[in-house]
Design a binder for these strands. Structure first.
Lengths: 156, 156
DNA sequence: GTTCTGTTGAGAATAGGTCTCAATAAGCCG
DNA sequence: CGGCTTATTGAGACCTATTCTCAACAGAAC
């Protein structure tokens, strides 16, 4: 239940590839696993710099790629132009609702989707590895704000 | 059943916004509605230049945005870094299977998803406007090619 | 035709990510 | 520990796709 497990997976993965456990690499690992939800590369970079860690952007990107390759981190574009990274919780894949007004991202788990994925992929001769479902719409807060404003300028 | 209808929607939309029906705008409309499947901005640009149309990239992007705003065109990132555009066929939303080896994109229609979208959005207080479901995996061709290669180098 | 103002083209600017390469430092061995 | 090999790093150049800027242009209304 501790991070130990994922850390071990990571260390083994790095070794298997003939890689090295550098200080920067392990710090980035800790950094992303201490965040919850989505982070973008730049935020990780800045957050580490703020802590006085000397690390370069290139290293952040390189090691994020490594984490993605070993399956511990998922990289996605959720509407915006930049990639967002989040750690994978094995066995409990989730998807995202995105508010098109405030860009808020809400995670949800829908058991139905995996089955749907398998079925659809099979029907087209695909061997599915993963899916991404993004539902965009307007969240409660923004809907409230919008209707207030509309009411205020109602006149025609 | 003719394009006329969509063209009319577009013209009305432009007028409602106080916009003008410029030659470039209408040519881009024709161009994208003559393509089937997905196109990226650059391909539209080059295709129009090839036909001797004088148009700039900026204009292509600006008018694609207009088409997206008026709901006739959908803009998505299907894995790659660039946006892909496709015309919307009202009432028959589809989603995409993407081969992670050859980047091939296959469209599919799944009636179940709209219902799922509504249900999930409601559960989280969202007013859903649209969804994007991308399933990535390996297509038949690539799977075949991969297994052949694996067999060829089988020895351990 | 004139006027008003939205639109265009060309290229500069931006954003986010990737690449280069000399310097550094894991990991391994004695 | 000290040395060696080579993966990794940092800084900044580079790349690509898209957006922005602004003077010139051209729809639309009269």
């Amino acid at each position: 239940m501790e991070h130990t497990t994922e850390r071990e997976i990571f260390e083994r993965y790095v070794h298997r590839r003939g890689g090295r456990l550098t200080a920067e690499r392990l710090r980035l690992f800790d950094e992303i696993f201490n965040q919850h939800g989505h982070v973008d590369a730049d935020r990780l970079y800045r957050s580490m710099r703020r802590q006085g860690r000397k690390i370069s952007r290139a290293t952040v990107y390189r090691n994020l790629e490594l984490l993605v390759d070993c399956g511990l981190v998922r990289r996605q574009r959720l509407g915006q132009r930049r990639y967002l990274y989040e750690h994978v919780h094995p066995g409990q894949s989730h998807d995202h609702l995105i508010c098109r007004m405030c860009d808020r991202v809400v995670e949800f788990v829908s058991p139905g989707i995996s089955a749907l994925q398998r079925e659809l992929a099979r029907a087209h001769g695909f061997d599915p590895t993963e899916h991404t479902l993004q539902i965009s719409g307007i969240c409660l807060d923004c809907a409230g704000r919008a209707s207030t404003e509309t009411a205020a300028s109602e006149e025609s």
